[in-house]
Design a protein around this nucleic acid. Structure first.
Length: 825
DNA sequence: AGCACGCCGACT
DNA sequence: GTCGGCGTGCTC
């Protein structure tokens, strides 16, 4: 790699650039630099190029050469976008690693790594911002664009080309984005809108005793308003701003009383952004001191950093890992270093983010794929120029342009959402973070209450350092855990629908105490399906090999894989029978059954279906938070990251569905999930309760969860992995082969597996039929490569790459799609 | 990813 | 007779 040489103008040297396009292409393309741009081109800058007949893209300069391409005439680059490189040399290194390790194209990495705002293309739409900065220092052309935008708020880049009558508009647009005048329009709906709540303050006029006295007198004939005022004065001792909801409850006055008080200018109402999950009473303090146990752990981590690059922090729930992270971050940024704090996507909406933000103030950026793009570009730039020292982010944050990275924290390192499945690059952000840290000579802390088997194994073998934190912070009690055998209760006829008598009693007791309940039901794959009682026919999706699920709310049958839906059936199309039954039990069904048992209780459901609508999730969560609903039924979502104050009981409807999942990590995952669910109950001063229902109530994993015995779970699990040759003793690569025609696919998959087997022998398994054999009209087969840990994995990957290339070159297999998933998770 | 080219079915 | 369906190949 070399940067643009300074040129002697006499020579008129012709230069070429190798560029990465943000597309999934197997090779990079070479363009010619027009002489006038020689000086401005540099590695890591973006250039504007035409690719194909019409499309214009911003591509990234990977290399500059003097060598003209041998077999074709290179097109000219149209323009150079950036003043300075947007990509650092370390990022190039990192991209290269991702490309070769996860066997994807460089364009895949570019598409995933750069926020949309840095990938302008000809049809990109620009939009004028609502609020413009006070000082506008615009060039003539920039002013022209802004004036035009005042008349027509949305404008395609092609239209800008037309307006200015010149092709080189990208630098101008880039400059306008930089000056915060325009932004790039996006289709993505902003999922994490800040939650606004009404707050009431008293008009400062009434700070005067005399005025207040007069006010009391004036309100004598309006007792409800007086109550409201009194409630305010009572609550306002600590903080003059009180949530309207809280006031309504405290005072017993209605909305009307508040309305007139606001109209009379006595109360002032304001909408304020609040933390979605816990308003106000978060007991986390900004000025805290570490407990002795935390202090010991903190010192141990720092000591181990002398010899190890990665330390696994095994900290049980409520042991105060966050405080420890904060101290570690503080230490890392003390000398201008940067810190990346990775969290699973879902956890980014929780308190931990609030706490860390509160502590570090404006040094911090939050980055995640569902965020709006302006912010993402902004964060990108602030990381690049060092303004942000700490970034909290989901997996894609590993792609940010850190200039002085000193520490990476991966919280909940066992979470499977760190692995990207679709599209390529199929990277594991936790593992990639370790590599990234290595390039920066930074340190990594992997934190979890239930570490992945892989990480624990690495710690055990001395590859990682290891620190435990097993003292509960602030004396939070472990919940009482109980398993109930569904089989036993069925035998004794004690079950009511899906609920054991034990769970029902627990629920009644909790409701009696005005406490809330969360019911956990694993994955909606077990949702209700229709089945003909006469012939066994079950309606299937026309595009995928799955049964359609019945949704009561829409009255329709839906496919969860492709979105297909059709009307429900009353007559069996196969045999004409009218005996159609509903089978299985999704969250929807549980909700229904539950409402029969507790008719007066408000029940809500939190799953993908109920949150698909705009603001659905927030509404459900805040209703539960505000105690408008007493029981929350949910899938994985409720287990992760949500903390509710008043929840005293957690019920697991059926633990077997987790354990029976056909995957070698099923037991590990079950343990992690159940342990996490347990951590949600009664975290405050009161001991909570967890009730786990299962057929398989003596399963070792359930026993280990109850006993809180991670070590035993690990030992058993490791023995199984060893016996059956699974990670961490081997490495896995999945190759998914897809085609529209089942026969072509079968033949193709067999041929490919044979070709691989010829070179890699019994490391090749399959082709096998995956759980779902057809999705979106494509049939799927899976070939698995399982290599021993000490095998030369680079060589294996090379063989794989070459074999697939040769395979796809064969005429009959041209239209066969292959996808490679390295280290599937 | 888009787009052009090219070869087979149901219609003004 | 033509319009348009999408399978295939190509983009420096």
């Amino acid at each position: 790699m070399q940067f643009a040489p300074s040129l002697n103008f006499e020579e008129r040297e012709t230069l070429f650039v190798e560029v990465i396009l943000p597309l999934s292409l197997a090779i990079n393309y070479t363009y010619r630099i027009p002489f006038e741009l020689n000086e401005r081109v540099a590695i890591g800058k973006r250039v504007v190029v035409q690719f194909g007949k019409h499309k214009i893209y911003t591509a990234l300069v990977k290399n500059i050469t003097k060598q003209p391409p041998e077999f074709y005439e290179a097109k000219y680059i149209i323009d150079v976008v950036d003043e300075n490189p947007v990509l650092t040399e370390k990022q190039f290194q990192f991209w290269n690693w991702i490309t070769s390790y996860y066997l994807c194209n460089e364009g895949d990495v570019m598409a995933a790594a750069l926020p949309t705002g840095l990938k302008l293309a000809s049809e990109t739409i620009i939009v004028l911002r609502d609020e413009l900065p006070n000082e506008l220092n615009l060039t003539t052309k920039e002013t022209l664009i802004v004036e035009f935008l005042h008349k027509k708020p949305r404008m395609a880049i092609d239209e800008v080309v037309e307006l200015l009558g010149q092709k080189t508009v990208y630098p101008i647009i880039n400059s306008l984005i930089g000056k915060e005048v325009i932004y790039i329009a996006e289709e993505v709906i902003e999922k994490y809108k800040p939650l606004l709540k009404s707050f009431i303050t008293l008009n400062p006029l009434y700070k005067e005793q005399e005025n207040l006295r007069q006010l009391f007198a004036a309100l004598e004939k309006a007792p409800k308003q007086l109550d409201a005022l009194l409630a305010y004065l009572k609550l306002a001792k600590l903080n003059p701003s009180i949530a309207k909801q809280q006031l309504l409850e405290e005072s017993g006055s209605g909305q009307a009383a508040f309305k007139s008080l606001i109209e009379k200018d006595i109360f002032i109402q304001q909408k304020m952004q609040v933390s979605r999950l816990l308003d106000g009473e978060d007991e986390f303090e900004v000025n805290f001191a570490l407990s002795t146990a935390q202090e010991v752990a903190f010192n141990a981590i720092n000591t181990q950093f002398i010899e190890k690059d990665v330390v696994l922090l095994h900290g049980i729930t409520a042991s105060g890992k966050t405080q420890l992270y904060i101290k570690l971050i503080e230490k890392a940024i003390a000398n201008g270093g940067q810190v990346l704090f990775l969290l699973p996507e879902i956890a980014l909406t929780t308190q931990i983010v609030e706490r860390i933000k509160r502590y570090f103030g404006d040094k911090i950026g939050v980055y995640h794929s569902k965020f709006n793009d302006n912010e993402r570009v902004e964060i990108w730039n602030k990381v690049l120029n060092g303004a942000y020292q700490v970034v909290l982010g989901a997996r894609s944050a590993v792609f940010l342009p850190f200039i002085n990275l000193k520490l990476i924290v991966v919280d909940e390192e066992h979470e499977s959402s760190y692995k990207q499945h679709e599209p390529a690059p199929r990277y594991q952000a936790r593992d990639a973070a370790i590599v990234l840290a290595h390039f920066h000579q930074a340190k990594v802390v992997l934190g979890s209450a239930t570490p992945s088997i892989e990480s624990f194994y690495n710690a055990e073998n001395g590859k990682y350092g290891f620190v435990t934190l097993n003292e509960r912070f602030g004396g939070v009690q472990l919940p009482l855990q109980e398993v109930v055998s569904i089989a036993e209760e069925t035998k004794r006829k004690k079950m009511t629908s899906y609920f054991t008598s034990v769970l029902i009693d627990d629920m009644s007791a909790a409701l009696e105490n005005k406490e809330q309940i969360i019911l956990f039901q694993n994955r909606r794959g077990y949702a209700t399906i229709l089945i003909c009682a006469t012939c066994g026919y079950a309606p299937k999706c026309v595009n995928c090999d799955v049964s359609l699920t019945f949704h009561k709310t829409s009255g329709k049958l839906h496919c969860h894989y492709c979105g297909y839906h059709q009307n429900s059936l009353t007559i069996c199309p196969a045999c004409g029978s009218v005996h159609i039954e509903q089978k299985g039990f999704g969250t929807e069904r549980i909700e229904e059954e539950l409402s029969l048992i507790f008719p007066d209780v408000k029940i809500a459901r939190l799953d993908l279906d109920s949150t698909r609508t705009k603001n659905g999730m927030q509404q459900i969560i805040s209703d539960f938070q505000d105690k408008k609903t007493q029981i929350l039924i949910g899938t994985q979502m409720v287990a992760k990251g949500l903390d509710f104050d008043n929840v005293s009981l957690i019920g697991v409807i059926n633990a077997d569905t987790l354990l029976n999942y056909p995957d070698f990590r099923a037991f590990e995952r079950s343990y992690q999930l159940l342990a996490q669910v347990a951590g949600r109950a009664g975290r405050r001063d009161k001991q909570g309760k967890v009730c786990i229902q299962a057929y398989n109530d003596t399963h070792r994993i359930i026993k280990q969860v109850i006993a809180n015995d991670y070590a035993q779970m690990y030992t058993d699990e490791l023995a199984e992995r060893k016996q059956f040759n699974y990670p961490p003793f081997t490495r896995l690569i999945f190759i998914n082969v897809k085609h529209k025609d089942a026969n072509v696919l079968n033949h193709a998959a067999m041929q490919l597996a044979n070709a691989l087997r010829a070179q890699l022998g019994n490391r090749i398994l399959g082709p096998e039929q995956p759980l779902i054999a057809r999705i979106r009209n494509y049939y799927i087969k899976q070939i698995i490569i399982k290599t021993e840990k000490n095998a030369d994995i680079k060589k294996v990957k090379l063989v794989l790459k070459d074999t697939i290339k040769a395979f796809n070159a064969q005429k009959e297999f041209k239209s066969v799609i292959t996808q490679i998933d390295v280290d599937p998770y």
